[in-house]
Design a binder for these strands. Structure first.
Length: 686
DNA sequence: GAGCACTGC
């Protein structure tokens, strides 16, 4: 056991301490929420003394004189709240050439940041949110005709760009948190670069200012991408976090949970009881066993520890527990990377970092996602460390050595290198690009990956070859790209309309493009309850049919206002928030279908037309049962084998032929959201 | 027999 070396530096040079502060090479990847602002006084002095306000004139000069610029601002510099205001006050919401009033848009990777920043800025300016300053994301639009400054998610601006690639509504676009390298912010930057190039050609100079706000490490890359754009750095105000490392590399890979718990128990002896702990683990399974183990050990030793799990699929009630005040108990929260940026927990003074994260990787040749556990990047490790107290000095215990830290990637692998590219490429063809060759990427995926995506788009008739050179969206591709859905999944709409079951297909697509609706609360009891719930809605025709029955259940409860919807959903193991989202997504897809004047027909209780539509829409997802392996083989590629996911209605059924909506590799390769089909519907696939 | 986190036209 190596944990004794972490005893606050007493073990001499076996302990390495470093400071995670100031102008270190990595800044914190900040995500705001309302709670974080609670402790910050909203007075004029505070704002006037923000680092960015001290260099206000210089910032403005750089922005005014450069069509594109990159601003590096560490946490606490006030860049996200102040720079947009500085621009607004300088009249940069007006078109520089014509003087026409336009808008400034600031994009954020997360909704919670977009709304919190808008509210904060509105209150600094003494205006109501939604008037001069507003925010916008899917299902929420708090802006009006008078709004000049919009905080939006990057997905919103991307959607705008697809309708109007010249972004004529805006005089200025600020891409915040660009270093996070999300799929939509990368895509946006690529579009902005094309736009910038096109503008030069037509001589419409300076019609759109572009500001990229990023952490230091990625600034050079953005600068080069935009033709050596000017970089402007603003100092931040950061607090000290003491870092502790293991003295030797950790070689016991399977021991992550017990190491974390041991660390908690040891630090419990050293830290004042009011200092809460936050432990980062890669996923659900590790978190549940850590919570159990902590409770068990705490009971054995008579300690005053109380452990909570925190991950996204936890019910709202369980998530809320972490905020309960514990006067005489120490809170220990075991969390996924949801606690890195999305959720801020007050009172945390000690962070324990396993150094691992679970993430999706796309397998391009077989076109499915794989869930893998990997080392965090140095930037993520710093972000995790920074969660130990915002105003007080915190401590972070890293369950890896400094050598291991130094070997970690500086930044996480950009999402574009880990994702299915069909959607991104379709976006580019939609805005009028003709060749993938001429796309310039911040980090280019390999040619193979691009070709694989192009092949799939051709396979499903979403793109067509142009007579001269290159490709364009097909008629279908044009329609599909207007839906907020994976292009291949979206094809179900066309088949369903033909087979007169569009109403059902819309519901199914709403489920398929939302998070799973079954709650995932930890504990044996809850696990049994979730299984029971899944059985209750189980359908012989498969999981898509189950979605329809869950949907009608939800609708009937929603109608009947006398019953307590929340309690009932919980009783049936359903997550009310996620089901609510499905409802909203359904409505959105429905509206789009109505606009396209598709025939809105229902097949009622007979699901045969729907199953046929599924078979016609995704013929490449046909799997046939092979008794020899007690599993399935992909009909279009017989060497690819998979199992039906255990949460499926058809798990263990040994159905002869199924079609999946998605495939995912975790411990094994699983077909998910499967539908029972008849192989005779697929004569063309042997 | 099993579930990283975000985001959208």
């Amino acid at each position: 056991m190596r944990l004794e070396v972490m005893n606050g530096g007493k073990a001499g040079n076996s302990v390495t301490t470093a400071s995670a502060s100031n102008s270190s090479n990595i800044s914190k990847l900040n995500g705001f929420n309302n709670k974080q602002f609670d402790g910050i006084k909203l007075d004029k002095d505070f704002i006037a003394n923000l680092p960015v306000r001290l260099v206000e004139d210089e910032v403005l000069k750089v922005i005014k004189e450069n069509e594109v610029c990159i601003i590096i601002g560490e946490t606490g510099s006030g860049k996200s709240t102040q720079i947009p205001q500085i621009c607004l006050d300088a009249g940069l919401h007006k078109c520089p050439t014509t003087g026409v009033e336009k808008k400034i848009i600031v994009t954020q990777p997360r909704r919670i940041a977009a709304s919190a920043l808008a509210k904060r800025v509105a209150s600094e300016r003494n205006v109501k949110t939604g008037t001069e300053v507003g925010f916008k994301f899917r299902f929420e639009n708090v802006t009006s005709n008078e709004t000049k400054l919009i905080y939006a998610t990057d997905g919103i601006l991307l959607a705008d760009a697809m309708k109007d690639p010249f972004l004529t509504d805006y005089s200025m676009v600020i891409i915040d948190e660009a270093h996070e390298r999300g799929l939509s912010s990368d895509t946006l930057l690529m579009i902005l670069k094309i736009l910038n190039r096109k503008k030069e050609k037509i001589g419409n100079e300076l019609s759109l200012r572009i500001v990229i706000m990023s952490a230091t490490v990625e600034a050079e890359k953005f600068s080069k991408f935009f033709n050596n754009a000017k970089i402007f750095a603003i100092e931040g105000r950061t607090y000290e976090t003491k870092l502790f490392y293991l003295s030797r590399p950790n070689l016991q890979e399977g021991n992550m949970v017990s190491m974390c718990v041991d660390c908690v128990l040891q630090l419990d002896k050293e830290e004042p009881v009011e200092h809460d702990f936050l432990v980062f683990l890669p996923g659900f399974e590790e978190i549940n066993s850590a919570v159990k183990l902590t409770a068990q050990r705490s009971k054995e030793k008579g300690l005053t520890l109380i452990a909570f799990p925190l991950y996204a699929s936890l019910s709202l009630a369980r998530q809320a527990q972490i905020y309960q005040k514990q006067s005489k108990l120490r809170k220990v929260i075991y969390a996924t990377n949801i606690a890195e940026t999305s959720i801020t927990i007050p009172g945390i003074r000690v962070v324990i970092d396993s150094g691992k994260v679970r993430q999706k990787e796309f397998v391009h040749d077989l076109k499915y996602d794989k869930l893998v556990t990997v080392n965090v990047s140095q930037a993520q490790a710093m972000q995790r460390a920074g969660r130990a107290g915002r105003e007080n000095a915190g401590k972070c215990y890293r369950l890896y050595s400094l050598e291991e830290y130094n070997k970690m990637l500086k930044m996480p692998v950009p999402e574009v290198l880990r994702s299915n590219l069909t959607s991104v490429i379709l976006t580019f063809l939609k805005i009028g690009m003709k060749q993938t060759k001429s796309m310039s990427w911040l980090d280019s995926p390999s040619k193979d990956k691009i070709m694989a995506a192009m092949r799939q788009l051709k396979e499903y008739d979403l793109i067509t070859k142009l007579p001269d050179k290159g490709y364009a969206c097909s008629e279908r591709g044009n329609i599909v790209s207007e839906f907020p859905i994976d292009p291949v999944l979206c094809l179900l709409l066309f088949k369903a309309e033909k087979n007169r079951c569009l109403v059902e297909a819309i519901t199914i697509l709403a489920f398929l493009s939302s998070d799973p609706v079954f709650t995932n609360d930890s504990g044996d009891l809850e696990d049994k309850k979730a299984d029971e719930a899944r059985r209750k809605f189980s359908c012989n025709e498969g999981d898509l049919a189950r979605m329809l029955s869950i949907y009608s259940f939800y609708k009937s409860f929603k109608k009947n206002k006398n019953t307590s919807l929340k309690g009932d959903l919980h009783r049936y193991g359903l997550n009310e928030v996620r089901l609510g989202t499905v409802f909203k997504v359904r409505k959105q897809i429905n509206t789009l279908c109505l606009n396209l004047q598709l025939k809105m027909e229902s097949c009622g209780q007979d699901l045969l037309p729907l199953r046929k539509s599924v078979a016609e829409a995704w013929p490449y997802n046909l799997c046939l049962f092979d008794p020899e392996i007690n599993g399935y083989r992909l009909a279009s590629d017989k060497k690819t084998i998979c199992k039906v996911h255990p949460t499926s209605c058809l798990a263990g059924v040994r159905a002869h032929a199924i079609v999946f909506s998605s495939m995912m590799e975790t411990t094994e390769r699983y077909a998910k959201d499967v539908t029972l089909v008849d192989p005779s519907w697929f004569k063309h696939i042997s």
